[in-house]
């Protein structure tokens, strides 16, 4: 379980995140949704230690930590695949850096590629495949970090609507198949409702949680389902209220 307490960050005296508390349960899918520019990506940078926090405490599985750098896998908005490496070698990067023998990491990636629908594309360059396939490769690379906590920063935002829908099923695998604890930020309400166990609506800067939705509907979810549409309307109403401030 990840526990965040009183996380605060100011830039030039302006609070971006203030007194932020959050608990991400083990094997849970927690999604943060908020208006553009509310500080969602900065929040992840703070958690990962890329940007130092002014105040706050982090603990992972009961142990206090300074940052999640060495504990979490972080998937950013763009796929960040290296154009000179094949999909296989891109996915193997975390293992290569950790000194895992290439044959061993390639075998692990091969199995992941089968699960992520990339079978047969291991030796393609990123430029030779679609955006959706690149993002799946980035997901495979995230899984190669072999860490139990995964942070997803709008991982599907650069994709078209149809590809997004396909990839949401793969993101769900992180929880169901790979048993990860997931914290994701997104600005897509439908995506949030399809994936989240806990959906937290954020305020504009300074970022705070203004409403929490517990979603107990079974996954995969049906976007035409009545209860899904009801919650969607409530979340949208809350977001519109925040955006109007």
């Amino acid at each position: 379980m990840l526990v965040i307490k009183n996380l605060t960050k100011r830039f030039n005296g302006q609070p971006i995140v203030e007194g932020f508390d959050l608990t991400v349960p083990s094997n849970g899918f927690t999604v943060l949704i908020g208006p553009s520019g509310c500080g969602k990506s900065t929040f992840f940078d703070l958690l990962m230690g890329i940007v130092p926090m002014d105040q706050g405490d982090l603990s992972w599985r009961g142990q206090t930590v300074i940052a999640l750098k060495a504990l979490a896998a972080y998937m950013q908005q763009s796929d960040l695949l290296l154009p000179w490496l094949t999909l296989e070698r891109n996915a193997c990067l975390p293992a290569d850096v950790a000194g895992v023998p290439p044959k061993q990491s390639a075998a692990r990636v091969e199995a992941l590629f089968v699960k992520l629908g990339l079978e047969g594309f291991a030796h393609y360059l990123p430029a030779m495949v679609s955006g959706g396939m690149r993002q799946r490769c980035a997901l495979a690379r995230t899984l190669m970090f072999a860490r139990d906590l995964v942070l997803l920063d709008e991982p599907l935002s650069s994709l078209d609507a149809i590809t997004r829908r396909q990839l949401q099923a793969y993101l769900l695998l992180l929880q169901t198949e790979f048993k990860k604890s997931i914290l994701m930020v997104t600005h897509d309400v439908e995506e949030a409702l399809l994936l989240a166990d806990d959906l937290l609506v954020l305020t504009a800067a300074p970022m705070r949680i203004c409403e929490r939705f517990r979603l107990d509907m079974p996954k995969p979810r049906d976007i035409a389902d009545r209860s899904f549409l009801e919650i969607k309307a409530r979340v949208l109403a809350r977001l519109e209220k925040e955006a109007s401030w």
Partner: peptide, 23 residues
């Protein structure tokens, strides 16, 4: 963002040079 990726992977300066900066 690529630099951050390598930083998060725990890459040494030499690894980052060889696998990222040089290519």
């Amino acid at each position: 963002n690529y630099r951050i990726l390598f930083q998060l992977m725990g890459a040494s300066k030499l690894q980052a040079l060889r696998k990222l900066y040089w290519p």
